[in-house]
Design a protein around this nucleic acid. Structure first.
Lengths: 209, 209
DNA sequence: AAAAGTAGATAACAGTGTTAAGTGAAATGC
DNA sequence: GCATTTCACTTAACACTGTTATCTACTTTT
């Protein structure tokens, strides 16, 4: 029956429009300051209609969260063909920071917002699969660097965490505007770039001790 | 007039009680999920009374923000007598992480929450003085490390930012619960400690290249 | 043509931050 | 000693929030 298929498609279509509207509003005003009625208004429906497609506001957040991780995953996977592990690691850092700078709202959603994080207790949830994949990719690359003597030997997971912390710290201070007030005029604008390149230089130095 | 002084003291007293109640609630439920009525209930006043002592909810946030920075400042200043710059730098990192682990709510308030950050546009505001002081202390220590050859020469501000990013990244991933789901069982509980100690080992390696 | 199902809307509930108006007691002026 | 003013505080109200229950109008099935 074509009508059933059409119905299904229309349903998916509306779901998409809700997500698009919600993303735009979340990124502009933040999660807490975006109301269901605002989302509904933007797509010309009543607020309660959203509840026919999403359990609650947190469900919308989770859907966007998942989308964003897939997006980052795509960018990271695009680096799979960089043969040299250390070069790949460096590229991953640059891609990570660029993602945060180009999509501060999405980055916030993924790594900073606490909003409905409590709804995400299930570690096995598909929501975590994408994030896990990205982190596993980092671990694998770090392990390869260690195997080739480009990084000192140790626990790849611990080193991955430390590396992730550094780039996340930069991204988070940027996104939540915590560093620019204490920074000198000369460095303010380029501090993210300068900091990242210095960190990369450290990493390179770690190998050829 | 003793009565006037007494009045003034009672006023300060109530302000204190409001702040104490607000802090407890913010740390337990978060800023957005704490209402003025909840704060008022806890101290036995009506919600509107709070407005006689604080302009709005953001003003309470700012007062607590300031207090927390002073608290961290005290802990950092206590390290002033550590003579060796690199040892002092290492101690600062440990104090920073310990502060975040022991006071996750306060850390969130200081470096992660976006809540009424927009109300803090004035860089010269006294609110920023404490934070600036802590960052300047870090810069000075880094500069001394460079002067003594314990760290490679460069812009102390950039290196301070990179170091801060690393510890902030660890603290933020911890506070907002973003790392434990992707971490292996063996490292999950001690990852903060392990990551920090590895980072410290890196810093030591940077000097004696 | 009658019955069932359904996409969507309206109304309502308990809660939010915040302001305006009101209350009762203390301090002040004469 | 009494009237007036001041002031800490409360109640009432407004416009908003997420969410649920109920209702409407239309489509599909029988």
């Amino acid at each position: 029956m074509t009508t059933l298929v059409k119905k299904e498609r229309e349903k998916e279509d509306l779901k998409r429009r809700i997500l698009d509207a919600a993303r735009a509003l979340f990124l502009e005003h933040g999660f807490e300051r975006t109301s269901m009625r605002m989302i509904a208004d933007r797509i010309g429906y009543s607020a309660t209609t959203i509840y026919l497609h999403f359990k609650d506001k947190a469900a919308i957040f989770l859907a966007l969260h998942s989308e964003a991780f897939q997006q980052m995953g795509v960018r990271m996977n695009a680096l799979a063909d960089v043969g040299d592990p250390l070069e790949r690691l460096k590229a991953m850092g640059r891609v990570y920071i660029r993602f945060a700078v180009e999509n501060p709202g999405l980055y916030d959603l993924m790594f900073i917002m606490e909003a409905p994080m409590d709804a995400l207790q299930d570690c096995a949830s598909p929501i975590w699969q994408e994030g896990q994949g990205v982190f596993d990719g980092l671990k694998a690359t770090v392990a390869q660097c260690m195997a080739m003597g480009q990084l000192p030997k140790g626990d790849p997971e611990v080193m991955s965490f430390t590396i992730w912390s550094t780039v996340h710290g930069m991204a988070a201070l940027h996104v939540r505007d915590r560093c620019y007030k204490v920074m000198s005029d000369t460095n303010r604008e380029r501090i993210l770039e300068l900091g990242l390149e210095q960190f990369i230089a450290w990493l390179e130095g770690l190998g050829r001790k």
